[in-house]
């Protein structure tokens, strides 16, 4: 069968094009500023990856469009916010150990609470609408309203300033380039999460079954695996990732507000569409594209920053409608 140039060299062309595109801003941006923007873009990309990977896995395996992911993201931020308030001494302590310890406590608490919320959501409402996208959108949108209102009831309706562990708010000066520590931490968190997800998906039997389920869930069931238990587990894991993303993003932006999920959910959907539904690597690449292009364009043409990602999404959809790394289905 004859193949087109794009089919033969598609991946190489994409990588070469990406390198050219990301070096292109150097024409209009001084070198040091470019590096600062690149680190900021990578950090933003990694944070978006944390949110988008959950959306992608949930859609890829369960075929569920989860609009409540944004609200779960906000819950993660607020649970972390509460832990930071309770352990203020550790947050403000001039101790790397105490700062990281309080961050880890907040992280575990946020992920556990939100994973539990995810399990309740999946078992109580989402299980009833498997296979019905319109109902999924409506019911998860309804769940979003309830979850956001619950935030207003429990934590109040106003924006709050997120307290940041002291170590995280400092920066390094490397050859006159200011590198914010927390941005580097975000990049490291993103890489660790990507590594853990890849390990689970590629090296464990459970992960292999999940990947098989992304391709053909009927067949996975017919092979003796309880797909519904798997769905609940995946939804809880996706919710946990949303919580991690919410906490990390709230430290990044230094604020929490009840509606914060909706802003980042839009970015997450763009990332998932660019990367390919169901693909974790696709989510990572998509998130980095979105994070970097947003930061470069925000510097060069501030008014076009938000629109550039939509433009990239449209171009990729035209060239490759299934996204850069399509998985299954």
């Amino acid at each position: 069968m004859a193949t087109t140039t794009f089919e033969r060299w598609g991946r190489e062309l994409t990588i070469a094009g990406a390198i050219v595109l990301f070096l292109l801003p150097l024409i209009g941006i001084p070198g040091k500023t470019y590096l600062t923007l690149t680190i900021a873009g990578l950090a933003m990309g990694m944070l978006l990856f944390l949110v988008a990977s959950g959306v992608s896995i949930i859609f890829g395996l369960m075929d569920v469009i989860n609009f409540a992911h944004g609200a779960l993201f906000a819950w993660g931020a607020y649970v972390g916010f509460s832990i930071f308030q309770r352990l203020m001494n550790w947050v403000e302590a001039d101790s790397v150990f105490q700062n990281f310890a309080v961050f880890l406590i907040a992280l575990v608490a946020a992920m556990m609470v939100v994973a539990l919320l995810g399990i309740i959501l999946e078992k109580v409402i989402i299980r009833r609408v498997y296979g019905f996208h319109l109902f999924q959108i409506l019911i998860t949108f309804g769940a979003t309203v309830v979850l956001v209102e619950l935030i207003r009831v429990l934590w109040g309706p106003n924006d709050e300033v997120m307290i940041v562990p002291l170590t995280f708010s400092r920066n390094w000066d490397i050859l006159d380039i200011i590198v914010y520590r927390y941005r580097v931490i975000c990049i490291v968190i993103g890489l660790i999460v990507y590594g853990v997800i890849q390990f689970v998906l590629k090296k464990t039997k459970l992960g292999t079954i999940v990947r098989a389920g992304v391709e053909n869930r009927d067949m996975v069931q017919a092979m003796g695996h309880n797909i519904f238990l798997l769905f609940t587990g995946v939804f809880a894991a996706g919710a946990g990732l949303a919580a991690l993303g919410g906490l990390a993003m709230s430290i990044f932006s230094r604020q929490v507000y009840p509606d914060m999920g909706s802003t980042y959910l839009l970015f997450a959907f763009i990332v998932v569409i660019i990367g390919g539904l169901g693909s974790v690597t696709g989510s990572l690449v998509g998130a980095l594209i979105v994070g970097l292009s947003y930061n470069y364009v925000a510097y060069l043409v501030p008014w076009a920053a938000a629109g550039v990602n939509v433009l990239i999404m449209i171009i990729i959809l035209l060239i490759r409608p299934t996204g850069l790394f399509p998985a299954g289905k």
Partner: peptide, 19 residues
Amino acid sequence: PEDMGIFANLTVEENMRVA
């Protein structure tokens, strides 16, 4: 099944392990 239900993105070994 009629369409064989192969997990195309998994290796042969992984297909067998899932089974």
